[in-house]
């Protein structure tokens, strides 16, 4: 299946480059601001953008993204508004977009309707941290038939059996969680990631992008060497709110580091 995401990785691989995948919570602090940030990401050389959907109980997220979700919910951001936001966004950018959402908003929306509407809006892939492949049989089948990439997670705790199952269900790329932990935690570079990623590659041709805990350009450079792409979320969200003037420089420095 050819998708905007798989084509992006193919192109990068040919050039010997790695993907820069920044994250932003949609609607934090407003949809206008999110649009501005997505365009800034593109300007700073992002290859794929990950858009968060706010949820009341984000159990895979650390404090930074929890707060971002709270702010977005207070502004009335819902899965529905995110989809119409993406439709509008598609008039100004063709950058690959991945949605990161918890499962209950999708379930409540109606899984099939969600897949078809997300695709129509211009979403290229979906990450649902609390939907492991074991529970995603229908979701994967329907997504496949609509050309929507299903991106599943692997973690340092993943066993052989889990790696087989996750790689089989994944399309677009595999999201390797750099740390056993939640988003925004500290990255520990102890050499184990290299071994684990090499292990995963035995089971899949799919690109592997690494996220959770990547915050400095040094982290990003290190991780980029081991993988096909680097996802940065909490550190960007934090800068957006604490030091917005420096955000652009920071994004450029990440882009430079990811080679």
């Amino acid at each position: 299946m050819k998708t905007r995401i798989s084509e992006t990785f193919k192109k990068l691989r040919k050039l010997g480059k790695k993907a820069f995948i920044p994250y932003i919570m949609t609607g934090d602090p407003s949809l206008e601001k999110t649009k501005e940030i997505v365009l800034l990401f593109e300007e700073c050389g992002a290859d794929i953008v990950e858009l968060g959907v706010p949820f009341s109980d984000p159990l895979a997220d650390g404090p930074t993204i929890q707060r971002a979700a709270e702010r977005a919910l207070q502004n009335g951001t819902t899965l529905r508004t995110v989809l119409s936001f993406v439709s509008n966004l598609r008039q100004v950018t063709q950058i690959p977009l991945v949605l990161m959402t918890y499962f209950n908003p999708v379930f409540r929306y109606g899984t099939e309707d969600f897949i078809s509407n997300a695709r129509n809006a211009g979403i290229d892939g979906v990450i649902i941290p609390d939907l492991p492949p074991d529970e995603a049989g229908d979701f994967v089948r329907t997504s496949r038939s609509h050309g929507l990439d299903t991106i599943f997670l692997l973690a340092p705790t993943s066993t052989e059996k889990r790696i087989k199952r996750v790689t089989k269900a994944s399309h677009g790329f595999i999201y390797y969680v750099a740390i056993a932990g939640i988003t925004g935690a500290n990255l520990l570079l102890d050499g184990s990631m290299e071994i684990l990623i090499a292990h995963i590659r035995q089971y899949t041709e799919n690109p592997i992008a690494v996220g959770f805990g990547v915050s400095t350009p040094d982290d990003a450079a290190h991780v980029a060497k081991l993988s096909d792409g680097v996802i940065i979320g909490s550190a960007i969200v934090k800068r957006l709110h604490e030091n917005p003037d420096k955000l652009k420089d920071y994004l450029f420095s990440l882009r430079q580091a990811i080679t």
């Binding site: 941290p129 609390d130 599943f152 997670l153 973690a155 705790t157 969680v177």
Partner: peptide
């Protein structure tokens, strides 16, 4: 069912 992040699945 079992709707949790992958990190917890092996546990």
């Amino acid at each position: 069912g079992r709707f949790v992040p992958e990190t917890l699945m092996p546990a």
